[in-house]
Simulated assay, not measured.
Amino acid sequence: MAQARTGRSAQGRANLYEQITNRIIAELEAGRVPWVQPWGSAKAGVGLPFNAVSDRRYSGINVLTLWNAIVSRGFTSHAFLTFRQALALGGHVRRGEQGIGVIYARRFIPREERRRADSEGRDPSGGIPFLKWFTVFSVEQCEGLPAKICEPPPPIPEGLILPQAQALIDATGADFRIGGPSAFYSPAHDYVQVPRPDDFHDPINWHRTAFHELGHWVGGTSRLNRDQTGAFGSVAYGKEELVAEMAGAFVCAALGIAPTVRHADYIGSWLEIIREDNRAILRAASAASKAADYLLAFRPEAATAANDDEDPDDPAAGALDGRVAA
C-alpha cells in the first residue's frame, strides 16, 4: 500500500512539473517572456504577488504563475489567499470563480528518522522532497473581506514626481517600472525598477535614484554598450556605479532638481576606486557625461539645440569626451 501511495505521489509530482513546464513553453512559443511581466498591458502596478493574510511574498515559479493570472484576468491587486483563508476573514470566494494553482515545496521526514534524531539530540536529516498543490484566489474574486485586505496600493500622490522628470522618463521610451522594495537596472531584461517616491524619506531623492538607474539603462548593449558584467563588490561594478551616480547628478542638475548627497558609505567605496587609479574619475566623468547627454537628448528642446553649430573655441565643447579620459 505504501508503495502504491509513493508511486502515485511521484506520478503527481511529475504531472505537476510537466504542467508548469508546458505553460512556460507555451508562453515562450507565443513570444512572451513570462519572467518579464508585461506591465504595459496589466491593470495592476508593478509588484510581486503576496498572500493577503500573512503578507508573505510568493516566490519561485509561483511568481510567474500569479503574474500570468494578474495580466490575463485583469486583476488590479497582487494579493491572493486560499478559500479557507477567505472564510476565516469573514468573507468568501464568489460562486463560479476559478482559482489559480500554486505549489509549496516541503520535505517529509519519516517517523523513524524523527525518533532517531530525538534520541540522539539532533535535528532530523534527509527527508523526501515533495510538492503540495494549493489553489488560491485573487482578493478581487472574493466578497465580504475586510476593506484593508482589498485596498489596492494608492496612486502616487500628485507632485511627488516632478513634471520635468516625468516628461523625460516618458520620452526615453525605457521600460521604467515603479514599485517594489529596491532600485535596479536589469541588463538581461533591459528594464529599470525603482520604489515609489513616497517610499523615500525625502521624495525628492527618488529623482536621483530614478536617473541613476536610467544611467545604467543608457549603458545597455543596444545604447552606449558599457561593460556591465562586473560582479557585485568588484572594481568593475564599483566603476559602473560611479558612472551611473554621476550621470544621475548631471541629469538632475540639468532639470533643476536638487536631491541630497549620498550616504558616506557610498562615497567611501568610490574613494577607494579613485585612489587606486588616478584616471578613474576622468573616465567615469566622461562616461557619465555621455550617459547624461544621451538621456537629455530625449527632451523636445534638445532637438533645437542640436541644430546649433558647435563653437570650436568653446572650452566646454568636448571637455568630457572619451579622449580626455583615455
Rank of each mutant, 00 (worst) to 15 (best):
R226A: 02
P259A: 03
L214G: 06
A117C: 09
D311T: 10
P300D: 10
P49S: 06
K239N: 06
D293P: 02
G60S: 05
G101R: 13
A247F: 03
G179P: 04
A42D: 10
A254Q: 12
S269I: 04
L81W: 03
P153K: 10
G238Y: 00
G7K: 14
Y266C: 08
A325W: 01
L28S: 06
V235D: 10
G121Y: 04
R122I: 15
F108G: 09
Y266N: 02
Y294V: 05
N15F: 07
G101T: 15
H92Q: 13
P38S: 09
G12Y: 05
S222N: 14
L16M: 11
R106H: 13
V261M: 12
L81C: 05
G74N: 08
A302F: 08
T229G: 02
D265H: 13
A117F: 04
I274V: 14
E301Y: 04
A52K: 03
Q98C: 09
V36T: 04
S286R: 02
D293S: 12
A325F: 02
G127Q: 02
R56E: 13
R56G: 03
T82A: 09
D277G: 06
G99H: 01
Q98I: 14
R94Q: 13
G159T: 14
D175V: 13
Q166G: 05
R5E: 15
I161R: 11
W35L: 10
F80L: 06
R94G: 05
Y237F: 07
Y191N: 11
I267T: 14
G101A: 14
G318T: 08
I103N: 04
S72N: 11
A105T: 11
A167N: 00
C252F: 08
N22T: 15
E18W: 08
M1S: 14
A288F: 01
A147G: 04
K239S: 08
I267Y: 06
D313S: 14
I267L: 15
R114P: 02
V251S: 05
D123M: 08
H216W: 00
V261D: 15
G248F: 01
A287R: 04
R107C: 11
I24R: 05
L64T: 14
A305W: 03
L64D: 03
T304W: 03
A247I: 05
I109C: 00
A183D: 08
S186G: 03
Q166R: 07
Q193E: 12
E112Y: 04
R208V: 02
G180K: 02
